[in-house]
Design a protein around this nucleic acid. Structure first.
Length: 428
RNA sequence: GGAGGGUUGGCAGAACGGCUAAUGCACCGGUCUUGAAAACCGGCGGGCGCAAGCCCAUCAGGGUUCGAAUCCCUGGCCCUCCGCCA
């Protein structure tokens, strides 16, 4: 959520920065609406405060005079009327506050000054690591290899849950579990994260805190358990960031860094017909997520380090990848700045996004009310939250299979995974 | 699923429906001190305001009342017991 005060103080600046995302008509209208409602809100506050002050002082007087046995019927009569007017004005006030909240909850974060204007085509490749393997045969897609080697069974997944719910079999199931264990170990041991295991269903308040509610939810992307008012997590970011919702943290606790495994559930409502084959886009997938709570002045540097932690996974697996700075139009709703990690998949001949590393600045912290005291005795401030996938499984699995494939149809397992998987090679 | 108890500041913990949330701890500033501790003085939820000051704030939302932390209703969460169950 954007800061109401900064919108009021410099609306042009906020408009300017939101334009980097494109769609200036919509965001300009949102800012106009907020300014209008806020002017009304301030007017109502001024009006109702006078009445409340009167009520408070008269109520005090009533108490005094009653104790002295005086009759105060006239005052009580007057106050009855004042109480009615206060009730009416308070209702108006709540309505304008709700209106402001409603608009602000739907207004995305302002991009960082370093974020390029434009859409996906304006994303910037910041760096590349490794080089795509050279094959003396035609590399095959993972859905062929995965099925042939008995690692993945899309049919069986579809039978029990519908398409987009893959089932992993035998060594494939082992590989899935191995990747999760190994990644968790890596981030705990080498990057100092605290491992946590969150609930996989969350409340609407939690979804609101990280920014999935209202937009993501109302666009039908979240699976909802209506009876309990809960949502299946689209990412561990939601429960883990909300660990500290409505908390005032001691400054010396920062930074806080968590790593969590969770399954992720997404309806992919807007992606009908896209990437329907294989594991490229599914409704349920596994992900190891990194979540950080930082002091504001640290968060820019923390984003670079965080991205490096996710990169380390791909480096250790020997997978060629590139780091992409997202342009404004490609930026997630809550994010101020995002790097995507894209891994090369020779079988499908594409770069696949396996991680998104974002600095949310104080956007989520304001929604979720996560503050810290910068110094003893100082006023509380909002923390900055960040997170990165470290990393998402299915596409990483795709890359492992497609990059590791041999002419005979077998797939070589990267060195670091061998003790977790228990084999050097998947073969028929 | 049933019954009961609880929910107040960073923490602990008071408050016959009225005098507008006591007190302690922690923390911040000051006095004192060579320095510290102790002691003492002041501050220590949020908003608006240059200021005086005003308003809001006792889990959330309704209600009763001139006036609600306090009474009533609904809901959340925590704890205890019973039932069921992995």
């Amino acid at each position: 959520m954007l800061d109401l005060r900064s919108i009021r103080q410099d609306p042009e600046e906020v408009r300017e920065r939101l334009r980097v995302r494109g769609d200036p008509a919509e965001t300009d209208a949102a800012i106009d609406r907020v300014l209008e409602l806020n002017a009304e809100r301030r007017r109502l506050i001024a009006e109702v405060d006078v009445l409340k002050a009167r009520r408070n002082s008269v109520s005090e007087e009533v108490g005094d005079r009653k104790r002295h046995g005086e009759v105060v019927d006239d005052l009580i009569l007057e106050m009855r009327e004042v109480a009615e007017r206060i009730k009416g004005l308070d209702a108006d006030l709540r309505a304008s506050e709700a209106g402001i909240e409603d608009v602000l909850l739907r207004t995305p974060n302002t991009p960082d000054p370093g974020v390029p204007t434009g859409g996906e085509a304006d994303n910037v490749v910041v760096r590349e690591w490794g080089s795509p393997p050279v094959f003396d045969f035609q590399p095959r897609p993972h859905w062929e290899l995965g099925e042939e080697l008995g690692l993945v069974d899309l049919e069986v997944g579809a039978k029990v849950a519908g398409s987009g719910f893959p089932a992993f079999i035998g060594p494939g199931a082992r590989l899935r579990r191995a990747l999760i264990d190994w990644m968790l170990d890596l981030h705990v041991r080498e990057h100092g994260y605290t491992e946590v295991s969150p609930p996989f269903l969350v409340t609407q308040a939690a979804m609101k805190g990280t920014g999935q509610y209202p937009k993501f939810v109302q666009e039908g992307d979240a699976y909802e358990v209506k009876e309990d008012g809960l949502y299946l997590v689209p990412t561990a970011e939601v429960p883990v960031t909300n660990f500290h919702r409505e908390e005032l943290l001691d400054g010396h606790r920062l930074p806080i860094s968590y790593v969590a495994y969770s399954p992720c559930f997404r309806r992919e409502a807007g992606a009908a017909g896209k990437d329907t084959r294989g594991l490229l886009r599914v409704h349920q997938f596994d992900k190891v997520e990194l979540v950080r709570f930082e002091r504001p002045e640290e968060s820019d540097a923390a984003l670079e380090r965080l991205t490096g932690h996710a990169e380390r996974v791909l480096q250790a697996l020997g997978l060629p990848y590139r780091v992409v700075l997202l342009a404004g139009g490609d930026l997630g709703f809550a994010s101020r700045k995002t790097y995507d990690l894209e891994v090369w998949a020779p079988g499908v001949g594409r770069w696949l996004e396996v991680s998104s590393s974002s600095n949310y600045w104080d956007f989520q912290a304001r929604r979720a009310d996560i503050r810290f005291r910068p110094a003893p005795g100082a006023k509380p401030e909002f923390v900055h939250t960040l997170n990165a996938s470290g990393v998402a499984l299915p596409r990483t699995l795709v890359a492992l299979i497609e990059n590791g494939q041999q002419a005979d149809g077998s797939v070589v397992v990267p060195e670091v995974l061998r003790q977790y998987v228990g084999t050097e090679r998947f073969k028929r």
